[in-house]
Design a protein around this nucleic acid. Structure first.
Lengths: 252, 252
DNA sequence: ACAAAAGTGTTGCCGATACACCCATGA
DNA sequence: TCATGGGTGTATCGGCAACACTTTTGT
């Protein structure tokens, strides 16, 4: 898909505010993050963008997410807003934009200081069609453990996202949108282990998950593996939603 | 303290971004929130303000907090950024500013759509000197259960803050900055009960708190009460800090 | 002396952990 | 048939909730 040179309708964009997304996917037992590579450079960045003046921040995130992945159905979570003054320091935006054929004056609001709202998304890897934009020539997955150099404070943003996701794991269900519709218990366990970066006991994991009561076991099994064929499970949507809203371990 | 009419140095302010603070205090076994009353109106609002162009968002929050309370030592937590387009709808800012003697043109950036970053603060009630600003004539505490009408989406902001504080309680210590330096176990328990809006068992609370290992029991007791005099406790700062950073119940 | 509040201890349940055995499958 | 991974069961431990008794203090 070719990306047209955007019209850069400055009036349409809300200045001083931006969005950055940490898009998590799960593939081959790895937790991955979707990154963009900027043309004529060695830098990678998180997918992100601007908010239109007549658009809510959340709507902007969904728009950006769809542009980069083709997906609308994702789990989305705002986790932090980054407001340091030196977030974008040492970045010559004017030169960058000039490279791309935009002749902007030095005082353009796009070069102004920007506060960015961080969101993380959980998406189904196989459904994603990674799509670069006009400024980037590659959009691909990276293992969360081996991220490349990132521009601005994007490293910090990605780390905070992972940290928040880990915490989410302890009081909310995770897995829907990140796994395919049907999955096996070992697959779900691998997901948890990858996010937590920690091994878990197979049997206890099994029991605990079932105890949460958000899984539905199907009659089918996954064959083709080199060993005993595991059962397939599916999330019970209503119960999953309920667990998401209420959380668990909220006692005290 | 008289508040001077501010110079409204528009150039100094970062447009489209603002801050709102939910300042929690604890007094007479009530959890309270500090609110401002606007002159010539019936509306109350959360303390908030603008970020200067050369100031980080966090620094702005500390500045605003100090202006309204006189305090610098507070527990501060960013909890959400509110980015709906209709947050400030139905508000005639031009008229309001005109009331205050500012003759601003309709297109002034101050009237523009604004994304607000929500923080909550925990402060020691007795140390606070509530101070209104130029636009407000009263700054006082309200019981969190009986808030008045609030402007904009401030009700929603306050509720989300309380909700986040409740969650914090389950994986981090709370109490420092909210209680005086020395306090009794029943007082700490009341604080927890008030935040959770739920009664707790005295003995189990006692044990659990001590088990966290963040308290230091003093020799003194609080006399004067009509009954058996309770011990005084104090937070063990280093251990408290450690618990804040590491949290508890993060197992999986 | 009595009521009310505070300090401390005991029991039992439940959930989480640690660990063992059996079964299915492909090579 | 054997190695590997997957399904299921059990014993134990620890934390938390439920609960009772004693002590202190002011009136």
């Amino acid at each position: 898909m070719k990306q047209e040179k955007p019209s850069l309708d400055f009036e349409r964009v809300l200045p001083h505010v931006s969005i950055d997304c940490v898009i998590f996917g799960f593939h081959e037992n790895q937790l991955r993050v979707l990154l963009l590579h900027w043309k004529n450079s060695h830098t990678w960045s998180l997918p992100g963008g601007r908010v239109f003046r007549d658009e809510s921040v959340q709507a902007a995130v969904y728009r950006i997410l769809e542009e980069r992945t083709g997906l609308r159905e994702v789990f989305l979570q705002q986790f932090y807003t980054f407001g340091e003054t030196d977030r974008l320091k040492n970045t010559d935006f004017q030169a960058i934009f000039a490279d791309f054929g935009f002749d902007l004056e030095a005082g353009n609001v796009l070069f102004d200081r920007t506060v960015t709202v961080g969101y993380y998304a959980l998406v189904e890897y196989s459904k994603v069609r990674p799509t670069p934009d006009f400024f980037t020539d590659e959009c691909r997955w990276w293992d969360v453990q081996e991220l490349p150099e990132l521009i601005f404070d994007h490293k910090e943003i990605a780390e905070k996202a992972l940290q928040t996701l880990r915490r989410q794991l302890s009081y909310q269900p995770v897995g829907l949108n990140l796994l395919p519709e049907k999955f096996t218990m070992p697959e779900l366990q691998k997901l948890y282990e990858t996010i937590l970066d920690k091994e878990l006991d197979r049997r206890n994991f099994h029991k605990r998950m079932l105890a949460y009561g958000i899984l539905e076991r199907l009659e089918e099994r996954r064959s083709g593996g080199a060993h005993k064929s595991p059962y397939l499970y599916r999330f019970d949507l209503p119960k999953y939603q309920k667990a998401l809203e209420e959380g668990w371990k909220g006692d005290w």
